[in-house]
Amino acid sequence: MTSDGWPLWEVFVRSRRGLSHTHAGSLHAPDAEMALRNARDLYTRRSEGVSIWVVPSTEITASSPDEKDPFFEPSADKPYRHPTFYEIPEGVKHL
């Protein structure tokens, strides 16, 4: 998908140190350098970020929605992976 030959890029922004990059949106740019700059201007003009990744949209491999069940359901029935599964006597700290 191009804008006169400018490919689409996905933009990921780290909003502050200690957090991971999250998807902010997309934009068109002729190359990676310009994509980074456009992303800086567009997605962090209100100081929303400290670090930016740009990825060509075509480089992303996504799970298909048809695979939804085999991909994600098995983990849904493993509540023991979550700490709230376990009962701890009241008053016990640092667990």
């Binding site: 804008s3 400018w6 201007d41």
Partner: peptide
């Protein structure tokens, strides 16, 4: 010339 550049020039 392109929408992305509107934002850049205004910045």
């Amino acid at each position: 010339p392109v929408l992305e550049e509107e934002v850049a020039l205004a910045n």
